[in-house]
């Protein structure tokens, strides 16, 4: 898999995702709530990161009829984080921000039989 640009995560994107899937956990939408939980700001939904990976992967290589995505979240993703995805030496897809921090790792299997 070539390196993929997942784009910048924005507050608008997070809000749109929340509406689309019905996940209004305030940790994703309310800065005051997020700060009380020890975070500097709201964070993106974990599944949004997986959806962004699929969106970019399907655009690059087409959408398979069947498949499997295993996503492991390593660090919170904040508004303003620009994410890229690339396959690491161990075969896992690493999703990183521009500072090189690994935000999530994933395995994507296409066309299950």
């Amino acid at each position: 898999m070539e390196a993929l640009d997942l784009g910048m995560v924005t507050r608008v994107m997070i809000a749109r995702y929340a509406c689309a899937v019905g996940d209004f956990n305030p940790i994703h939408l309310d800065d005051d709530f997020a700060r009380r939980a020890g975070l500097p700001s709201v964070i993106a939904h974990g599944p949004l990161i997986g959806a962004l990976l699929l969106h970019a992967a399907f655009r690059a290589a087409g959408a398979p009829q069947s498949g499997k995505l295993d996503l492991r979240l390593r660090e919170p993703v904040f508004p303003g984080d620009h994410l890229t995805a690339a396959v690491a030496g161990d075969g896992a897809i690493q999703i990183k921000d521009t500072a090189g921090r690994v935000k999530a790792t994933a395995h994507l299997t296409r066309d299950l039989c």
Binding site: P26, I27, R36, S66, K68, L69, L112
Partner: peptide, 15 residues
């Protein structure tokens, strides 16, 4: 919710 994290997620789809 103030102490909750999402650790991982798996999707397996047939279509």
């Amino acid at each position: 919710l103030s102490r909750a994290l999402l650790g991982s997620q798996t999707y397996k789809w047939t279509r």
